[in-house]
Design a protein around this nucleic acid. Structure first.
Lengths: 145, 145
DNA sequence: CCTGAAAACCGGTAAGC
DNA sequence: GCTTACCGGTTTTCAGG
């Protein structure tokens, strides 16, 4: 992971379909050198995936909510992760400091879809109650930099 | 935007570097047909970008927090958006239902960086107080579907 | 709007520095 | 570890249905 790798990552972030030669022209490397570095970055897990960013409205996933999870007793992060990964509406989630045990960011097609997803989140072991904040208007949405 | 387009988007989501021929083989179209559809999807803004998903630890952005904003009086979403867009640590944010006025998702290099970002968020007009939940362990992290 | 073919172009490998 | 060179495959364009 040197500076060259970081430049390559930056280029791929801007355009994941950029040719190796094009990237090389920017960072000052030959196409094959770039390829080997990209392969290594994928191999080592630095680059997790080549994807596209799609207009969320296309999916019809427009209703969002931030949900706090309050659990009884101890929470096993691994178990929580396993459960949450079965709910596709979960955009991101993490255990947190404060009175809540975890925060879950949901995105669903509509309000019933959100309610349904929340229902599935609630079956997590030891969930005492939840506290939801439905998003009225999205203010910021950046790439997961 | 028909079903074919949706299938193509699904394939590109799985691998943004997939060949047009390969995609065509899956969805039942020739390479050139796939290319024209992809071009059109980019043209019309359905596909916003071809990107890579990078291990966040690489950026050194490992400290995250969900922050609730409580404001005095009315909140102007546009003004809030303008302010939050000046804070690069803001990953996503939205005005919400419930006792809080907005939820802001922050990601910073370290705790001091998080504190600094929070400081900059707090200068938003009419902010009365904030309530932060620092992420202890990230459970889920999906593409911005 | 699709297919199929032809030309240009790029990715992947191998040899050499 | 990088570069140049080469071959095979893919992209891209275009004529035709």
């Amino acid at each position: 992971m040197d500076n060259l790798d970081r430049q390559i990552i930056e280029q791929l972030r801007l355009n994941a379909r950029a040719g190796y030669g094009d990237i090389g022209a920017v960072v000052g490397l030959s196409a094959s050198a770039v390829k080997r570095r990209v392969d290594r970055l994928v191999e080592t897990g630095v680059i997790r995936a080549f994807t596209i960013e799609v207009d969320p409205a296309v999916d019809g996933l427009v209703v969002e909510a931030y949900v706090e999870l309050f659990c009884r007793g101890t929470v096993a992060p691994d178990e929580l992760r396993r459960l949450l990964s079965t709910v596709p509406e979960v955009v991101d989630a993490g255990t947190v400091t404060g009175s809540a045990d975890a925060v879950v960011h949901l995105r669903a097609r509509d309000i019933p879809g959100l309610e349904d997803a929340l229902e599935r989140v609630r079956v997590a072991p030891n969930v005492d109650h939840t506290r939801s904040a439905i998003v009225l208007s999205r203010l910021i949405k950046r790439d997961p930099r």
